[in-house]
């Protein structure tokens, strides 16, 4: 369903991703682990071109997407820019810092994409958004602005916002890292619910126990490269030195 083909990206001199390849099948849950600065988040952000890759290709639902930018042909750039939202609307993404829109109520946060991207009428969009918020347990917070929500609640809004668009893949970018410890398990439970529903997901996380529980496959990244891919059992018993060192440092 989602193929990453020799994706590379650098920020100036820093090569963040070096020729990364990964295939994710429909219904699969892939967790990406690795030390910070290994390029996990950047890889995730390349998948929906929030940070476009410098080279390489993303194949989503049999359609190939590449970065495009002409130095001279402004119109072609605009045409390309205009196509990207189609891809992004099919891929839900949840961020470490929630990124809920502070000037909108919970309900508006979730119904915005339905109205502007899916072009659903306002009333119907509100219904769908309400349902989506109910599923994450926020039915009593519909008219509340984000500054009155806890971190966990904000993250639930962000999850509902992504799910309301009925995406084919969900990307989770360290979604519990900014949460108070007691709120972490609630968000992980939301993701577990999606696992049960068979959602295709790519999850960047530092929650090792969780990753080994839910993942069908685990990807270990280091220094911009995928070092090893395997089932949780394979990774747990890895003999690859860097993966082994990382896991033993974390699973103390």
């Amino acid at each position: 369903m989602l193929e990453i083909k020799s994706v590379s990206k650098s920020f100036g001199e820093l090569h963040v991703l070096k020729d990364v390849n990964l295939n994710v099948a429909k219904g699969e849950v892939v967790c990406i682990i690795g030390p910070s600065g290994s390029g996990k988040s950047t890889l995730l952000r390349c998948m929906n071109f929030i940070s476009p890759p410098d080279s390489g290709e993303i194949v989503f639902d049999k359609v190939s997407w590449r970065s495009y930018r002409s130095k001279f042909n402004v119109l072609a750039n605009l045409r390309y820019e205009k196509k990207l939202p189609q891809l992004r609307a099919e891929i839900g993404m949840v961020f470490q810092h929630f990124n809920v829109f502070p000037h909108m109520t919970t309900l508006e946060n979730v119904s915005l994409g339905l109205q502007k991207v899916r072009k659903i009428k306002k009333d119907e969009a509100k219904q769908v958004a309400t349902k989506s918020l109910e599923q994450v347990g926020l039915s009593d917070k519909l008219q509340v602005y984000p500054d009155q929500l806890s971190g966990g609640q904000k993250q639930r809004v962000a999850i509902a916002r992504a799910l309301a668009l009925n995406p084919k893949v969900m990307l989770f970018d360290e979604v519990t890292s900014a949460l108070d410890p007691e709120l972490v398990s609630g968000i992980l439970d939301e993701i577990r619910r999606l696992v049960r529903e068979g959602m295709t997901m790519i999850i960047v996380t530092h929650e090792m126990k969780f990753a080994f529980q839910v993942a069908h496959r685990i990807v270990f990244m280091d220094q911009g490269k995928i070092v090893q891919v395997g089932t949780p059992a394979e990774i747990r018993n890895t003999q690859e030195p860097r993966a082994k060192a990382f896991l033993s440092s974390i699973l103390e």
Binding site: P85, F95, L112, K116, A162, L165
Partner: peptide, 18 residues
């Protein structure tokens, strides 16, 4: 304005203008 705001907007499929 935090860059995360536009990231999130792009991620739900809004275009640059929106």
């Amino acid at each position: 304005i935090d860059k995360g705001q536009s990231d999130a907007a792009f991620a739900i499929g809004l275009n640059r203008m929106q």
